[in-house]
Write a protein that binds this DNA or RNA. Structure first.
Lengths: 242, 242
DNA sequence: TAAGAGCACGTTGTCCGACAATCCGACGAA
DNA sequence: TTCGTCGGATTGTCGGACAACGTGCTCTTA
């Protein structure tokens, strides 16, 4: 512990630039909406070339901490919940997350979330859920895409209705990942659609009645149905969701 | 609605470069571990200059889709779960997530996760949990940092024991965010520590007995305790976790 | 023959300078 | 007032250049 030296890492300059700006943002020195100095100014302050500064900026850009305004000038921004969810789900998918893992996460998180939502969803949200459900009922039998997007939208609406951005980010990232599998199920398992519509209707009624227990139970059945649909459709549970 | 024009966007070249490479990866044309052509080659293929290629690469780098290997050569990589969790939590923190939101998410997700873990944690995991708990018991009374990291490690170990990468990513990102608040609680609420140790011990016993019900109940109490600790410590629930 | 030293090469990190495209604000004209 | 125009500021892209570093080869030597 005494004579040991650290790996002696020397990170490239563009990374230092990135961290320096990032630190200014996270520490609060640069607030949301504040303009970031021009590239030329950053060059002067860091005493590096514009190429290096630009490479550093790109790293921040992807993180969502900075964005280009209408005037192309760089300013500080806060990551949007939707972007966070999309980025998380994409990373997990690329990491090889399997349908089994995604479904399990749904099964764990959504029933209690739905219970909580039963006490929080306002009338507008409930009526939006009814619209989604009606859209599935009226949809053309052949149009499976409507059913897929409707099923995902149903999940999303509940997550959004919680009024909790952290939960929304997590649940929505699950929604993104389940979509592809859901498509396979709905195309191959004919009975799936009716079951989805039924479960949604029950859940909506429970929401309207602010009945947490019933909401949770039906949400559980709804998600179990998805797993059953997978078996029927012959979807490989251990295959990565792509 | 008909005569409206779209914003007419034209994305910069470096973004196109980024997307082109990303598409090659997500489509499977480039697999995990595959080397990515050198910058010079990419210049030739895209018919752009190296500066532009490099800016595009930086975007991918942050996403975790590519990394520098030995010899500094670029190759395809899969995002690590830990990195995903860290990125998600960081984005949410920067987005202004409040303690209330994080705690609620914990309260929703962890009890059922713990129930599931009761059937899955192996003996090694349980003994690691016991070690963590013992570390808290033996820790110096003044050393609150040990308690904080121990409490977080306890949560992490349970999440990891589920054997589900998606859940691990989500739960761990919550763990990251709760850490700062936990620190405040433990420093200001003297009784918190004893309650944490107690709850952990009960949960571990339930794990050992593979008793899902008891595990879930004590996990719920454990998390409720954290909220109570907040009140005692005077932590503002609506303040952003930083 | 096999191990080690030394070197050429390829690749990346950083720098420099330059130009076109675009946006913004100001200024002047109808 | 509204519109066109212009100049300054800023970004996007280009081309070239050099140093630092790791890799693999060759050549020497035991």
């Amino acid at each position: 512990m005494d004579g040991d030296f650290k790996p002696l890492l020397k990170e490239p300059t563009y990374l230092k630039v990135c961290r320096a700006i990032e630190e200014k943002i996270t520490s609060g020195a640069l607030r949301n909406g504040d303009p970031i100095p021009t590239e030329a100014e950053l060059c002067a302050q860091f005493a590096v070339t514009r190429s290096t500064v630009r490479e550093g900026i790109r790293l921040l850009e992807q993180t969502g901490l900075v964005a280009r305004g209408p005037g192309k000038r760089l300013f500080v921004t806060r990551p949007e919940i939707g972007d966070i969810a999309a980025a998380t789900s994409r990373s997990l998918s690329l990491g090889g997350a399997t349908f089994q893992e995604v479904w399990e996460s749904l099964a764990v998180a959504y029933p209690p979330a739905a219970r909580m939502a039963a006490g929080r969803l306002n009338e507008a949200a409930v009526s939006r859920l009814r619209e989604i459900n009606a859209g599935l009922v009226n949809a053309d039998d052949a149009d499976s895409e409507v059913v897929v997007s409707g099923a995902v939208a149903f999940f999303h609406e509940i997550a959004a209705g919680l009024g909790n951005r952290v939960m929304l980010a997590m649940l929505d990232s699950l929604n993104f990942m389940i979509e592809a599998s859901l498509r396979q199920i709905i195309e191959k398992a004919p009975r799936a659609r009716a079951r989805i519509v039924e479960a949604q209707a029950r859940i909506i009624d429970a929401f309207a009645a602010k009945d947490g227990d019933t909401t949770e139970q039906w949400m559980r059945r709804h998600i179990d149905d998805i797993a059953r649909g997978c078996e029927v459709a012959g979807v490989n549970l251990d295959a990565p969701v792509l």
